[in-house]
Design a protein around this nucleic acid. Structure first.
Lengths: 344, 344
DNA sequence: CTTGGCACTCTCTGCGCTAGAGTGCCAAGA
DNA sequence: TCTTGGCACTCTAGCGCAGAGAGTGCCAAG
């Protein structure tokens, strides 16, 4: 491919990126800055099409780049400059201005990236496998419930509730944690997992419940590593002109993400004990005026602590959905309470 | 409103809910099960329109319910049966089959509700204000970093990293935690907040840093309560026929939510140290074949621990986005590491 | 009060037409 | 041999129009 063809391909892709439209020979000849006619451009572009760098959506449209075209563009046609100082400052401010909590920093970075690029942002969270176990703690919550807390050297914290068969004193729990920390503390999680496997197999009988539970919990925590990923700004995709989407839907989704007004609305419905419906404009909150919100408070140990519900169009099968919201609220309350589950 | 009008309104709304279309007099006369003619139906419906229960999108369309119509329907026309046994079983299974961790139970309940209703699901997390402080723990992570962990009687766990000015021994931290627990443990969080305010005002000078930090952290945690809400299934809205959306977009969004394949893809790019692009079909993952994924690994203390990046259409301003991804990865790594920040 | 009849209105769909954009090819020119 | 202008051809997008279909409102008769 000669220099002129490269230049034309570069210009074509740049124009397509900024306009989103297929690029024709006349426009390309004008904007590429070369003193050549559209006919010449056509000859060159026809060759590029043969080589698979561009494609024509239909006979009388211009050309758009293929993925090979973009690949060549990225690899050989553009020079990627380092991030500008002003962009760096914005990023630093958004990442750094937070409480220095690892989880929040990851979140802030992904969100900032998503907004600045106007794309979907994602982040793979530090693999626990590369981290070291710092500390384990067991806290008695109730009679037969122990809260286990794991901390790694990177500051990641994981907690799980363990139900035990026999009540354990605070002293016994402290002792169990000490033994666990002594055996496994300071080792890479990878290694801890292997050791746990081995120790569990060797000494089945003689270890006490809490330590055994802790061991099994540790295994589970490490195995769940695969899933750890944060994604931000899925809705950026809706703003692409390529996917023109109903305007009201977009507005609604952005409300849903901001949450603030929804929280206020829900707190109203926590007072009663019934399912509550806001149909259309009844909520007094304009972006919801074409939608229905159904909510029900749920109780833990008889005490209302939160609200659960759904949001959808006014046209929804109320007869199915109301009992679902109600039932979920009740079952959730039971799952979080400490009485018996209902027989199913 | 007489019985016949009520019956017709009920029938009209039910038909509209199942079809999504305006309901005309002929169809209504046929399906309502009453031996009356379409003309009679028209008379009745005209009255209902005057009363604001239904509306006509245009002259020659049928009628659709207004929000008043839905409200009347819900309040007076339908009998809401309790949740069926089979639905209860499904819910119980989804809520209960998990490790009994409060956060996961809340998540599972909301997700199950969202999927079963095919609406957006949300849940207001138990207000911390109604909970009691169970336990506070301070763990030394590094020289000047302390991890503070708060546990409530409902099993909620909150952790924050605190940077302190002077290093503290493990013994000093234990002592600080003990003092904090002795002063505030077992009290409602509401009360703890009030006490913290007062204590902070009274005894500015003589308290040590770590306790003071813990106090301020406690305040912050309680103040942040407003925001705690989980939302699941925003994308259910895209499946509504009312919002017909590009088919490929929907497929992509569902892939983004499932994450699994994305995680595999990203783990590939963690090995190198550079920005990596998957353009179009290059990822070998079909649903991404019209999109570009750009990723960059980030390092904590010189060690690669994760990947951050963006996903969007092939047509994206690569020259702006590549440095942003790269820059964010670097700045994030620095924010999470313990060397100096770069000067901005 | 109910009903059939009827004129009227509005949307939706398909059709044909045109303008516009862009291509491919060819023959002449440098 | 490459470049260029010319030209016929193709395809899309947009517009207007007509007809079908659905549904209404009103009226007069039962």
């Amino acid at each position: 491919m000669d220099a002129r063809a490269r230049h034309l391909l570069k210009s074509l892709i740049e124009q397509h990126i900024s306009s989103g439209q297929p690029v024709g020979s006349r426009q390309l000849a004008r904007d590429a800055g070369l003193a050549i006619s559209p006919a010449t451009v056509r000859n060159v572009i026809a060759d590029l099409e043969d080589e698979g760098y561009v494609i024509s959506p239909h006979t009388s449209a211009g050309r758009i780049p293929t993925s090979s075209g973009y690949r060549f563009f990225v690899d050989s046609l553009i020079h990627v400059a380092p991030l500008s100082g002003s962009a760096q400052r914005v990023l630093l401010q958004r990442i750094g201005a937070r409480v220095p909590d690892a989880e929040e920093v990851l979140h802030a970075a992904t969100e900032a990236l998503s907004e600045m690029t106007r794309m979907v942002g994602f982040i793979r969270v530090p693999k626990r496998a590369t981290q070291t176990l710092r500390h384990v703690d067991f806290i008695a919550l109730r009679e037969r419930e122990v809260l286990a807390i794991f901390v790694t050297d990177k500051g990641e914290v994981e907690n799980r509730l363990i139900r035990v068969e026999t009540p354990l004193s605070a002293a016994a729990l402290t002792q169990a944690a000490n033994r666990f920390n002594a055996s496994y503390g300071g080792r890479p999680l990878q290694e801890v997992m292997a050791l746990l496997d081995e120790d569990l197999r060797q000494s089945r009988a003689e270890m006490d419940h809490i330590l055994r539970n802790a061991m099994e919990l540790g295994k589970e925590m490490l195995a769940a590593d695969q899933e750890r990923m944060l994604i931000e700004g899925e809705l950026q995709l809706l703003d692409l002109p390529d996917f023109a989407v109903n305007e009201r839907l977009r507005e609604l989704l952005s409300v849903v993400r901001q949450k603030r007004e929804l929280v206020m609305l829900l707190d109203q419905s926590m007072r009663g004990s019934d399912v509550r419906l806001f149909i259309g404009g009844e909520s007094g909150f304009a972006p919801l005026s074409d939608f229905t919100l159904i909510s029900a408070p749920y109780q833990i140990d008889g005490e209302p602590v939160g609200v659960i519900g759904v949001l959808g169009p006014m046209r929804m099968p109320y007869q199915d959905i109301i009992p679902l919201v109600d039932g979920t609220a009740r079952l959730l309350g039971q799952a979080l309470s400490h009485s018996e589950m209902i027989s199913s």
